[in-house]
Simulated scan of single mutants.
Amino acid sequence: MTNHLILVTGATGSIGRLAVEEAVREGHRVRMLTRRSGQKALPNGAEVVLGDLTRPDTLTAAVAGVDAVIFAHGTYGSVRNAELVDYGGVRNILLALGDQRAHLALMTAIAVTDRKGAHDWKRRAERLIRASDMSYTIVRPGWFDYNDADQLMPVLLQGDRRQSGTPRDGVIARRQVARILVKSLFCPSADRKTFELVAEKGLEPQSLDTLFAGVDADISGAVDAVHDATNMPLSDEPQTVLDEFRQIEGRRRARAGSVA
């Protein structure tokens, strides 16, 4: 296996730390982005880099030379925090990458298209990932660790139709979310796909390729995921969001022009 260098944001959080462990177990080198020094008992193959997702000037060292980024950071409830961290963190990492190519895996949430407060900012982060035109997978997990012990069969849904705001929408183990984020990075059948992730009764498969292959890829040039409701027109977005979207999109076009 190629020894890739993966940057994990939210690396000390409940999903991020599991993604770090999974990536190391898979033979990758891992760079853990954190705002605080003094991390202890790091897995072999992991390093810490200091940086703040809300401060672009602190992210240059974090992205230097990386082959992939796992966005495992996230906030809950506060619209302002979602804007600064969930959305702003993705924007700032993409801008820090500049012309550097990387595989991207972004975690948002099930029901992200429900137009409820903070979810709009998570959805805008998804749009930036698509606009970057890099290889990506966007994972929208259900409710963490509400699954039963025998509920380990991952199911990938599309269209984001489960929006009750309760565990009835779907449940999934944190460990499985981390595994799928890592596995998606260099898997061709996961490329440019967005899906909701839940679990049903059954065993966890050894390989995820068939699961990834069973969902539709996003439409090239579309701002939203394939099968999603078109209920957040780009034309209605705040001007700052439009400007940042076009900035990311413009870098993609510049890269395409240089290749041509």
Rank of each mutant, 00 (worst) to 15 (best):
A149Y: 04
A64F: 10
K40I: 00
L42K: 07
E244Q: 07
A19Q: 06
G250V: 06
D216S: 09
G98W: 02
Q163T: 13
G16R: 00
Q247G: 09
L50S: 06
S78M: 10
A213N: 12
F144S: 13
S14A: 15
G117V: 15
I219L: 11
A149E: 14
D99W: 08
Q239K: 03
D148Y: 03
V171C: 14
L211K: 10
R101M: 15
T194E: 05
N44P: 15
A19R: 02
G74P: 14
A190L: 08
I110D: 03
N92A: 10
R91I: 01
P238F: 15
G170M: 11
Y87P: 14
V139R: 03
R255C: 04
R246S: 06
Y76W: 06
A178S: 07
F212H: 03
T240F: 15
Y87Q: 12
G257F: 07
L185W: 00
L185S: 00
A173H: 05
M134F: 01
G51I: 03
D86N: 13
T34E: 01
G16A: 15
M232F: 08
A229M: 11
A131P: 07
I219P: 14
D243G: 08
C187M: 10
G221N: 10
Y136S: 11
A61Y: 03
A260M: 09
E22R: 14
C187P: 00
M232I: 12
A190C: 12
V63S: 02
W143L: 06
K193T: 02
R140E: 14
A256L: 09
E22G: 06
D150H: 02
G142K: 13
Y87M: 12
N44Y: 14
F71I: 03
P141H: 13
G170L: 11
T9F: 12
A190K: 03
A109I: 00
G117S: 15
R123V: 02
A102G: 06
G10E: 05
A82V: 09
V182G: 01
G45M: 05
D145L: 13
N44V: 15
Y87G: 07
L84A: 14
R162C: 09
E249Y: 10
A111G: 04
D86A: 07
M153F: 13
L234I: 12
S220H: 11
I248A: 05
D86W: 05
L84P: 11
V171T: 08
Q176S: 04
D120R: 09
E249M: 06
M232L: 14
V48Q: 05
T137M: 07
A19K: 01
A109R: 01
H227A: 08
G45W: 05
G74C: 14
R246P: 05
I6D: 00
A102R: 02
G165F: 08
L197V: 00
E244W: 07
R127D: 05
L94I: 09
S207Q: 11
A72Y: 00
L53R: 02
R36A: 11
T113W: 06
T137V: 01
E204F: 03
C187A: 03
A229S: 08
V66K: 08
N147A: 10
V198A: 03
